[in-house]
């Protein structure tokens, strides 16, 4: 079903995507070196890395529903890379905070995490993503077997916490976090719907496939 590119085409496509996903980071570094990040460069870096972390997190979550809707069976082959990019930008996001905001003062970080709900949820999202990134290899997937799947369903929590983090940070104009939230709701809703149709009509299910 759908478009079925050959092995070589798929590899080229994936390499292209890999390069494309690096562009925001390359651009940031370039602009930082050229002192072209504007009046508040630190904030610009934090905003950009955070935005792209959320973007890739949602892109990761979009793979399964997209495959279901389009029938493109090779799409899941991109999921690990997209997820790792989400972690990459989230880690960069946290690093710029830890470095440029509090100069790696563990006490200050701890205080923020405990005291500020938006940092609490953002930090929680990052912590959740650490074991997911570490167990993203094929070997770990094999070794963990059934448990791998339940472990990696934590990505839903990371997505929700990530959107909350953005939502609670903005002052009044919530349009952007709202948009992220809406996309997340659609992606999670699609899963619930798929599960319900699979459970609710066991007779009809095989025919639907």
């Amino acid at each position: 079903m759908g478009w079925n590119p050959g092995r070589g085409q798929l590899a080229a496509l994936k390499a292209g995507l890999f390069a494309l996903a690096l562009v925001p980071m390359v651009q940031l570094v370039w602009r930082a070196l050229a002192e072209a990040l504007g009046a508040n460069p630190v904030e610009a870096v934090q905003r950009s890395t955070g935005w792209w972390a959320l973007f890739f997190l949602l892109a990761t979550l979009a793979v399964t529903p997209l495959r279901r809707w389009t029938g493109l069976g090779w799409l899941p082959g991109w999921r690990r890379m997209l997820g790792l990019y989400a972690f990459f930008y989230a880690a960069a996001h946290f690093t710029t905070y830890a470095w440029l905001d509090v100069w790696f003062d563990p006490e200050a970080i701890l205080k923020d995490v405990v005291k500020r709900p938006f940092i609490t949820v953002g930090f929680a999202a990052l912590v959740i993503m650490i074991p997911l990134a570490l167990t993203s290899t094929r070997g770990m997937q094999r070794r963990l077997g059934r448990r791998w799947r339940s472990l990696h369903s934590a990505v839903y929590a990371a997505g929700i916490l990530g959107v909350l983090h953005f939502w609670w940070l903005v002052k009044r104009d919530i349009r952007e976090p709202l948009a992220f939230g809406a996309v997340l709701a659609v992606l999670l809703g699609a899963r619930l719907l798929a599960r319900r149709t699979a459970k609710g009509s066991p007779q009809a299910a095989p025919e639907n496939k």
């Binding site: 009046a39 460069p41 630190v42 904030e43 923020d112 500020r116 938006f118 940070l169």
Partner: peptide, 16 residues
């Protein structure tokens, strides 16, 4: 309620 007011960043001076 959401962030600290103890410190600030001076635009054009306090960078990386």
């Amino acid at each position: 309620p959401r962030w600290s007011q103890a410190t600030e960043r001076r635009i054009g001076e306090d960078g990386f």
